[in-house]
């Protein structure tokens, strides 16, 4: 405190510096925000572009229209007499509505099955002690290290034997049968629930079965929500398996496969690039909403798992 000039006091300098730092952070965040959102904004703007054709030369469309969205649900063709007629609901080249229903069905089913499997496995490894536990854990670790689609051909062969190729049931099995391997995050969560709870219940004569259903599960809402939402979102984004397991009939595809096919072929891309953008926006809305809702669980789930390994 040897300076007398109040303006130049360390406190004031510190405050000014802090203010400058905060302003800098705001600017950086704003710039980063623009960079991060730019492609998304481009996607949204393109989806409203009334010009047909895949090439966009300006960011902001000159001709706004909902046509790309309408085209996803109602498609027209010229009939023999040269009239524009609506394509029948079962003969569309890209039946977007059907894809949404398919994906929803697959996602709901595999979400329920996967969540159950994950909870069963993670609870077992977290709370129960038995002889071969360590071996099972190691096996799980090892199985998890094989690249996911390395054995795709074999899984397909199995599905063929079971008669489940080209069926949504087959897809559900593909997405959920291996769910047991994804136990780490949930196990991390269960590890944090005090063991004293189990002990007390045991003294009261509860079986492990009862402890699982009546004591632990009610306490596990965050991890159940987290697991359910992550498994629910899986089928919306998977292209690899659905492209290998489903045939060329567009009515059996999920959204991911369908959208990919829209722009995969050079004979389609000119006509379908903008409807593709519209289709992407439509599915992004509910998924984003879900994601925002579950953010809180996501943070908890992931770090819980990470801390415990």
């Amino acid at each position: 405190m040897n300076t007398t000039n109040f303006q130049n006091s360390p406190q004031a300098g510190y405050a000014a510096k802090r203010k400058a730092a905060n302003t800098a952070i705001y600017i950086i965040l704003a710039v980063l925000g623009v960079i991060w959102l730019f492609p998304i904004i481009w996607l949204i703007l393109t989806s409203f572009d009334g010009e047909t054709g895949a090439v966009t030369r300006s960011l902001i469309p000159t001709n706004w229209s909902f046509n790309n969205y309408i085209k996803l649900f109602v498609q027209y063709e010229t009939d023999a007499n040269g009239n524009e007629v609506q394509v029948a609901a079962d003969a569309m080249q890209f039946p977007y509505m059907q894809w949404i229903l398919n994906t929803l069905f697959v996602a709901v089913c595999s979400c329920v099955i996967s969540t159950l499997l994950v909870l069963m496995v993670s609870y077992t490894f977290s709370r129960l002690r038995f002889k071969s536990r360590k071996t099972f854990l190691n096996m799980g670790l090892i199985l998890g290290m094989f690249p996911g689609f390395m054995s795709m051909v074999a899984v397909y062969a199995i599905m063929k034997v079971l008669g489940l190729t080209n069926s949504l049931i087959g897809l559900i099995i593909v997405y959920s049968a291996g769910a047991g391997l994804g136990y780490q995050v949930a196990k991390g969560f269960f590890d944090t629930i005090p063991h004293a709870l189990d002990e007390a219940a045991k003294i009261d004569g509860a079986t492990r079965h009862q402890i699982f259903w009546q004591i632990i599960l009610p306490l596990s809402k965050p991890i159940i929500v987290y697991t359910a939402l992550t498994t629910f979102m899986g089928p919306w984004g998977d292209y690899i398996f659905v492209s290998y397991f489903m045939d060329q009939n567009p009515y059996g595809w999920t959204v991911a496969r369908g959208l990919y096919e829209m722009i995969d072929n050079k004979e389609n891309i000119n006509e379908w690039f903008k409807p593709f953008c519209a289709g992407a926006v439509i599915i992004a809305i509910p998924i984003t909403t879900l994601f925002l809702i579950m953010q809180r669980f996501y943070v908890g789930g992931m770090t819980g798992g990470a801390v415990k390994g």
């Binding site: 054709g53 895949a54 090439v55 030369r57 050079k266 004979e267 891309i269 000119n270």
Partner: peptide, 14 residues
């Protein structure tokens, strides 16, 4: 990356 038919048709147009 769009495919040659798109590129060419567009190129003639503009």
């Amino acid at each position: 990356s769009l495919g040659d038919n798109v590129f060419v048709a567009d190129g003639f147009k503009n």
